[in-house]
Design a protein around this nucleic acid. Structure first.
Lengths: 191, 191
DNA sequence: CGATAAACTTACTTATAAGTAAGTAACTTT
DNA sequence: AAAGTTACTTACTTATAAGTAAGTTTATCG
């Protein structure tokens, strides 16, 4: 058959994203992608030669998404508060609607068992993410929107860590955890 | 051979703990335990009938450890500050010295792929952990040691989430992350 | 219309996983 | 000293994983 062929690669990537961010690298197999799609494992290998390649593409897409999202946030005015809220909403959506974790969580957990390529992508992503959040924190303090008395980098790190943890605890303790933790982040910034 | 037999079960549990907390349920196999110990997989099955049983025992031990640790913390005087610091030191040691994550992280990540038994243990652990931290927060506020203006439960949740995240980010960004995040937790409690 | 390339499938290989059944050596009990 | 129990091993089964090679269909291009 193979009628609408153009979109197969995209479908594979989408399923892989959900699975990678939802279960981790070692928590899914090619079958979890191919069977629900009604294709064969070999079709995945046609588009992505290895599992490492596939997950590397997932990481790359997440970085691209983040880049375009954060660029978007910045367009809508320079308000640090707005940018923080946009990022919080993005994370909130990923956790509550998509039931996904930040890829950094999944990489960190299985660190020792992963191909170098994936680890490298994760390190780059963490640098990009922290750089963005650090700028938001700096901006917020300059504009007297946020209050904190440590390095902006440290505050950004702490915010990111808290959000990572929220994603995990929400799975164990229920979705209300996410909003409680996000509230606390705002509160700790003097909002 | 089998000369020192008594301790095999304990050795298996210790290796399984390191592997489970270090790589997650799907990130290790029986071989990772048996080969370095110089025993066969079947020897593991003799002591623990399934992988689920083994990891359930690991979770149980972690809960027991936590229970005795927190009981210990409480004996050394009722100071909330002391109890917080003791827990922070415990987590810090697990991350930096043992290179382990809190089991909650590993369970949350692979949630959908895990046996019910493990999930149930994790839910219980998260309740116990949060109950303890909530008591510490309540105590700290009563004694004017900590400052925060939300429910003690929410503050405890936020602290735990932050520590969970610190464990992950430390693997990607280096060990200094842990102390930076811990500093921030203190700071956000008015310390 | 025929050749070519893209997008697959079928069928296979190799490796590794968890788990089991039957046998064995050493200590323990009677 | 015989019998049973503990703590394993050897050898196996079954399932599943990633990955590959060769063939097939469909669209496209000259």
């Amino acid at each position: 058959m193979t009628i609408p062929r153009t979109s197969t690669r995209e479908h594979i990537l989408k399923r892989a994203t959900v699975l990678f961010q939802g279960r981790g690298y070692n928590g899914f197999s090619f079958k979890d992608i191919s069977t629900p799609m009604g294709i064969r494992n070999a079709a995945i290998h046609y588009h992505f030669s290895t599992k490492s390649d596939l997950c590397s593409a997932v990481m790359q897409r997440y970085r691209d998404l983040l880049k375009s999202e954060t660029a978007d946030f910045m367009k809508h005015g320079g308000s640090a508060r707005y940018q923080l809220e946009a990022y919080l909403a993005f994370i909130r959506h990923e956790i509550l609607d998509a039931h996904c974790m930040c890829p950094l969580t999944n990489v960190a957990v299985a660190m020792d068992t992963l191909p170098d390529e994936i680890r490298a992508q994760a390190v780059t992503l963490s640098n990009e993410l922290l750089a963005y959040l650090t700028r938001v924190m700096e901006l917020g303090r300059e504009q007297d929107e946020f209050q904190f008395n440590c390095a902006a980098e440290q505050k950004a790190l702490s915010v990111k860590a808290t959000l990572q943890g929220a994603g995990q605890l929400a799975r164990l303790m229920g979705p209300q955890v996410v909003d409680q933790v996000i509230d606390q982040i705002r509160c700790d910034l003097g909002l």
